[in-house]
């Protein structure tokens, strides 16, 4: 008698996000719009992201989810709207109005961006250790031994063997490259992580391992995250909350399991019912 046949169970995280305490969202996006000439990238998108919360953005190719992610993360300049971030140093700031040095500093310290293609997020010509150490050196670390120590620590966290520290990422498998990219991004202790199809292009078994790793890190470090993907299984495992996009517009938002198990919008119903059952 239910609209979906998928059985439901609480996600393994049991919903750890939005834990009281904090009175302001970490990130607030207001009426964000980006046009490509006459075409709409994303239109009038608003959402709040609370500390420790993971927001999934799903939709098909061309739905505007990546445009939205790039606008929010400072990689694209939106035409309208505001991106408010609760900075460590000086409270809530409109990221678009920050000076470029401030914004870049924010992007390489308190924010992280995990690209779908690890090659876009790594320096392929330097060793794994240097890839992880770069952000540390970028904020002034000048002690080789300590930088290397932190790099080793992070390689361990992302399950890369210590003896690979001096190897270049070109010699790594796709899954390892993606894990290295995550280590490189998280080494400065960011509070907000943007991920664009983090498991895209990986083998299914590698995907599971990566998802488990991301889930553990998000939980352990209390990260907030915005994850763009077209893979509903990924958001079911990682996201507390879901935003469904179509044609640049948000058509449905809600608790992840609620949106997937009791979708209200026609497009979401189509999306959910299109997933092959294994």
């Amino acid at each position: 008698m239910s609209a979906t046949s998928a059985d439901f169970a609480p996600s393994p995280d049991g919903g750890r996000a939005g834990e009281g305490g904090s009175a302001t969202p970490l990130l607030r996006v207001e009426a964000l719009t980006k046009r490509y000439g006459p075409r709409i990238g994303c239109a009038d998108v608003s959402f709040d992201l609370w500390p420790g919360e993971v927001l999934g953005i799903v939709g098909e190719s061309g739905s505007g989810k990546t445009t939205l992610l790039n606008c929010v993360s400072g990689h694209l300049d939106p035409d309208e709207g505001r991106v408010l971030y609760d900075t460590r140093a000086s409270g809530v700031q409109d990221v678009r109005l920050m000076s470029e040095p401030e914004r870049r500093m924010l992007m390489r310290t308190d924010w992280a961006f995990v690209h779908q293609n690890a090659r876009d997020g790594l320096r392929m010509t330097v060793s794994a250790g240097a890839n992880v150490g770069e952000r540390l050196m970028g904020v002034g670390a000048r002690h080789y031994g300590r930088i290397r120590g932190q790099a080793l620590d992070w390689l361990g966290k992302v399950e890369i063997a210590a003896e690979r520290i001096d190897d270049r990422p070109a010699a790594f498998s796709g899954g390892m490259q993606q894990r290295l990219q995550i280590a490189r991004n998280l080494v400065t202790g960011p509070r907000l992580v943007f991920m664009d199809e983090p498991t895209g292009g990986l083998d299914v078994s590698v995907q599971a391992r990566l998802l488990d790793l991301i889930r553990g890190l998000v939980r352990e470090l209390g990260l907030s995250a915005v994850i763009v993907t077209h893979d509903l299984a990924v958001v079911r495992l990682l996201a507390d909350r879901l935003m469904v996009m179509k044609g640049g517009h948000v058509v449905e938002t809600g608790l992840t399991d609620q949106v997937l198990d009791d979708p209200q919008h026609a497009y979401t119903q189509l999306l959910v019912s299109s997933v092959l059952q294994v």
Partner: peptide
């Protein structure tokens, strides 16, 4: 912007 962390990446590679 005096973002010179990358310069030390080169030196890091040397030492490693």
């Amino acid at each position: 912007l005096a973002e010179y962390g990358l310069m030390h990446v080169k030196l890091y590679e040397d030492i490693s």
